[in-house]
């Protein structure tokens, strides 16, 4: 496996994009990896543009920028459009079709829909849990680099509320990806 793993998540404020990146970072610290996580955002707490960029490595990390993400989680059409072309052919885009209606079929990388918002409403009655579903799916995709148990443990520490629902939503997301 290559030493450097880049993960980008981007969407609106309030979707948990920063918490998601933070959770992956916490899990990586528990496994003794070096981590950087950049967050960029507008002024608004909710509704504005947000992006997390996570880099994991066994060695000290120079550039904290995700220029060629291994995994890109797109939670808004604007985010998809802005970062889709940065994903290399061997990378993967995970997108929520509730927000990303138009998919660019010309991209070389794999693209996978993850209906996190709809699943959250269907199973947990609240779109809030889409974040946990997305994290479960990311955890499956990052297996071999991050341990699923460490990701879930970190998530329950980062979001100390709704533990049962979050655990169930995480597992549901995990099962959405092969």
């Amino acid at each position: 496996m290559k030493d450097r793993t880049e993960i980008v998540a981007s969407g609106f404020g309030g979707q948990g994009v920063v918490r998601l990146g933070q959770t992956l970072g916490e899990a990586a610290v528990k496994q003794g990896l070096r981590v950087t996580m950049l967050k960029s955002h507008g002024t608004e707490m909710r509704g504005g543009y947000v992006r997390s960029q996570v880099v994991l490595s066994q060695k000290p990390i120079d550039s904290p920028m995700c220029e060629n993400p291994d995994v890109f989680l797109a939670l808004s059409a604007a985010a998809y459009k802005r970062f889709k072309d940065t994903v290399p052919p061997e990378g993967l885009i995970l997108y929520d079709p509730a927000f990303v209606a138009e998919v660019d079929t010309g991209l070389k990388c794999r693209q996978k829909p993850l209906p996190a918002k709809d699943l959250a409403v269907k199973h947990f009655k609240r779109p809030l849990f889409a974040n946990a579903i997305a994290l479960g799916a990311l955890s499956r995709l990052l297996e071999g680099r991050l341990d699923k148990d460490k990701v879930l443990e970190s998530f329950l520490e980062v979001i100390p509320k709704y533990k049962e629902e979050n655990r169930a939503a995480f597992e549901l997301g995990y099962r959405q990806v092969e």
Binding site: G25, V35, T36, M37, L38, K39, P64
Partner: peptide, 9 residues
């Protein structure tokens, strides 16, 4: 901003 707001181990 990347130093103060960004996270690292």
């Amino acid at each position: 901003q990347l130093i103060t707001d960004g996270m690292e181990d």
